[in-house]
């Protein structure tokens, strides 16, 4: 078993004091350079959990989080952590493609520019490399200055992936990245996700079990804020330990 990139220790989350827990004592390890899928019915807390991993929940007022999330052995909720540095290391791709209203080039260059990269030549290299790695380069290389909104939905989502990997993250979180896309575009993103795990630790949230089965090495099943079961994908889908997992993957609910 290879090194665990992220270790989550008894993480609980509530949206306001006294309210029922949205996440209950979740404990999980995520292996480096692997692809893990979070599955579960909607509202089960899988997206909430994902957003804990790069502290995007910090913006939600009233949220209280207990427990630890260790990235390379360091707690990302420790008081001395620079959240902006953390988010550079843990990138995120959202449910709906959300390109900035800039050109394709500017979208990808946004992150590196934040980090202080001003050199046009190097920015150009980063843009090309990121677009190549997200499989978009051949389609857009002649119109890098076109508005990002002129791309199709699937292309926009791959642009968002390019934008996320342009800052060289170590972990890439994908929150239902194909839920707004058609089957063809979905297939491309899935292929891309399998490719990306060579370089990054990828976590993908999906409500689509087939997708999880197709792309992931490991699967974690969430239900009502609880991590019911996790393990190698083949094992979860063939011989689940828990009755609830079995019910879910056989389609009894959700």
């Amino acid at each position: 078993m290879s090194k665990e990139k992220l270790v989550i220790e008894s993480l609980s989350l509530t949206y306001s004091k006294g309210a029922p827990l949205a996440l209950k004592e979740v404990a999980l390890g995520i292996e480096e350079n692997s692809l893990m899928a979070f599955i579960g019915p909607s509202g089960c807390g899988k997206s909430t959990f994902l957003r804990c991993l790069n502290r995007m929940n910090d913006f939600v007022r009233g949220v209280e989080i207990t427990g630890r999330v260790l990235l390379d052995g360091r707690d990302i909720y420790a008081p001395d952590v620079d959240v902006t540095q953390l988010r550079r290391r843990v990138g995120m791709v959202f449910q709906r493609p959300n390109p900035f209203p800039f050109s394709i080039r500017e979208n990808v260059a946004y992150g590196p520019k934040l980090l202080g990269e001003r050199d046009k030549g190097r920015l150009g290299e980063i843009v090309e490399r990121s677009l190549r790695n997200s499989g978009l380069w051949e389609e857009v290389k002649d119109r890098l200055n076109a508005q990002a909104s002129s791309l199709s939905g699937g292309q926009q989502q791959r642009l968002c992936i390019a934008r996320a990997i342009a800052v060289e993250p170590e972990v890439l979180l994908m929150d239902e990245p194909t839920s707004a896309l058609d089957p063809m575009a979905t297939a491309r993103i899935e292929e891309l996700a399998r490719e990306l795990k060579k370089y990054y630790t990828v976590v993908i949230v999906t409500h689509n079990m087939q997708q999880a089965a197709r792309v992931s090495d490991h699967t974690a099943f969430f239900l009502m804020g609880e991590l019911v079961e996790h393990g190698p994908t083949t094992k979860i889908f063939t011989t689940p330990r828990d009755k609830r997992t079995e019910d879910y993957i056989t389609g009894r609910f959700g």
Partner: peptide
């Protein structure tokens, strides 16, 4: 958080991706 070892890691990653490229400058 100290970031030195992440920087080196980031560069190692980068060379895995593309040998000709430079890392994003991460100036402390």
């Amino acid at each position: 958080m100290k970031d030195t070892d992440h920087e080196t890691r980031g560069e190692a990653l980068l060379s895995a991706l593309d040998n000709s490229g430079d890392a994003c400058p991460i100036r402390p």
